[in-house]
Write a protein that binds this DNA or RNA. Structure first.
Lengths: 357, 357
DNA sequence: CCAGCCTGATTAAACGTTTAAGCTAGATAG
DNA sequence: CTATCTAGCTTAAACGTTTAATCAGGCTGG
């Protein structure tokens, strides 16, 4: 009624060669004292038999499973694929598996998700916290992504610098009067981005910030943002805090007969997957996810591996990369152009929105 | 130098109460013969101490880890979030964890990803195969999602029926001449969708299929699809095989001064996250991911749990749901409207046949 | 030549769980 | 009153690994 899990084990190899299991274990892990020739002999036999070490046995003995958990806020977050892919890649590169846990947008589910992971004996957890959530003190190493306000070890994109890069790009194209579009001023990420943008506006320039949620509270869901108005008043560029808002701006502009980038330049944030396939390609700024993931995973791994000896059940915090900030990368595409350019070669584009609002 | 993993174990409970570990194990799992009062006494003690069973110990003994692997083609696939979320939800609902593995779009990486999972001792694997990949015979239960052509147990959205639903909707709105947009005829998914669509075109109607990849091979990457031309020739609706292609069509239409849905109706497929936020909201058709995931996971689970006794190292195929097909759901939004609606058309500009392509 | 040391191996215990098998005592049957 | 059954527990082995402790010799130094 059970399972002698198919593959060969240390015993098999040991028996086959005629030595003890301990020797085989030592040979393969390179730890004890084994003669060179015996080591190679064992190695050969091992992959002749196609030996795969049993994680269960290893885990039981060492207390380490080689698996880390990944807790995501809500998967509907369009950034999610990038994050998951990057984490999985970074983790598997150093031999860790990634257990998924989705907190489904629910704050309570987040701790519940963490518990599920702990019950699966993960060695550590990477958390991308839901906005406004605080990471509680759990009993294993944790790395937090992109919530710089959270205490403890965190790695985040440098949103401030990203904002600076966007505005520097626009300034370089000659733009002086900018409309900045955010959603909610209570988001630290958005605030960082907006802050970075403002910090690079020239003294002879001007920046007006539009907070969408506030506007919608007054004028209703999906209301126009009054962009045409601003253009008429001399604003020449619009910088949104997210690609989604940029897309919304784009439709509003076209509805008003304003073309991008001839009449006005437009930028987004995050480089969502469709940002490059849409025409014209959206100039935006992206997080260096591979790097962020690598830092997070490495920090976690070193915390885990340094954990030996620390038997305290309380949280062990990853030591390195306490608050690493990773620069963002500007992706220049077709929605930005020099101000008042007489005639661009780029195809004029009209994604003209109808109805709604 | 190590790790006596913090929490209490069966031993602790046994010692505390004064019985043997076996009894505790039996009491908690409800298997052996233990008196009722002792059971409750043990139960109480267990959660008084906050007992969490060691997965490692369990796995070692039983050969089952309670973890399934999820292999995804390439995470950049915009459908990915929905899939991952649904699988994770379905799995965790019946106590399974989900180990992530991304094959990064590379066909070779797919089997490599599978191997990574097997080395982590997963009990089974859910695969969303890359287009054109065949699932090799691996040594554990497998459920395949959305590749109906693949032999073995598969659960897939009923793309054919989805196509039918789209066209039925358009027909109901009075449309007769349809342009169908696909990407690559070698994709069985796309073929199913197109096939379903054609099967519902009325005998007094007409459907012309545009294969994007073929067109681009002739006219170059990102070329116009000649939609305005078709509209001029009396086509009143465009149905794309994916939201992405629908979006592309939308931009092309607007560039030609054709408005949606007044001049022409447009539909997509998949209900990608942005499909509802874009204006006008895209009428599309979505997979019932929660249901698909549940079927896949359940099939896998029953294969795993039925595996006891089957000691063959060869693949064990999930028995139930051999080729389950799950209906798709039509999401009617703003890009479809009755044909030739007399009212709110701004003004029927006579379509200047801006001859493209 | 003997005490000690290094080398290369072995033995045995431990991690936490499940489960077949064994044991004890009270109840029942004959 | 003895033989048998059974409910309720215990013993012990097993899963596959790591690792501390031990051991057998060969070598070295004195």
């Amino acid at each position: 009624m059970a399972h002698p899990r198919p593959g060969p084990n240390l015993n098999k190899i040991a028996a086959e060669i005629g030595v003890s299991v301990a020797t085989v274990s030592n040979a393969l892990s390179g730890k004890g004292r084994v003669s060179a020739k015996l080591i190679t002999r064992i190695r050969d036999k091992a992959d002749e038999l196609g030996y795969v070490p049993s994680l269960a046995g290893y885990a039981l003995r060492t207390g380490r499973t080689g698996v880390i958990g990944l807790v995501l806020p809500d998967i509907s977050n369009p950034l999610f694929p990038q994050i998951a892919q990057a984490i999985e890649f970074a983790a598997s590169a150093i031999g860790y598996g990634v257990l998924l846990a989705d907190s489904r947008g629910d704050v309570a589910m987040q701790t519940e998700a963490v518990n599920r992971l702990i019950e699966k004996d993960v060695d550590g957890i990477v958390i991308v916290p839901r906005r406004g959530t605080r990471i509680v003190d759990i009993g294993c190493p944790v790395a937090v992504i992109d919530s710089p306000s959270t205490p403890g070890n965190t790695v985040a994109a440098d949103h401030w610098q990203g904002g600076q890069a966007v505005v520097e790009h626009l300034i370089g194209l000659g733009h002086r009067k900018l409309v900045l579009i955010g959603n909610n001023p209570s988001s630290t990420v958005q605030n960082d981005r907006i802050g970075g943008m403002r910090s690079r506006v020239r003294s002879d320039g001007q920046a007006e910030v539009l907070w969408i949620e506030r506007l919608e509270r007054e004028r209703g869901q999906g209301c126009p943002l009054g962009l045409a108005d601003r253009i008429a008043r001399g604003f020449t560029a619009i910088a949104a805090v997210s690609d989604l808002h940029a897309l919304r701006a784009l439709t509003e502009l076209h509805r008003a007969g304003i073309t991008v980038p001839e009449d006005v330049s437009l930028t987004g944030f995050d480089d969502l997957t469709w940002a490059s396939v849409v025409t014209p390609g959206l100039t935006t700024v992206r997080m260096d996810m591979p790097r962020i993931a690598e830092i997070a995973v490495r920090a976690l791994a070193s915390a885990i591996e340094g954990d030996r000896g620390n038997t305290s059940p309380r949280a062990t915090i990853a030591t390195s990369a306490e608050v690493a900030k990773v620069p963002m990368q500007l992706m220049v595409r077709q929605t930005t152009a020099p101000v008042a350019s007489p005639s661009r070669t780029t195809d004029p584009y009209t994604l003209e929105g109808k109805s709604l609002c």
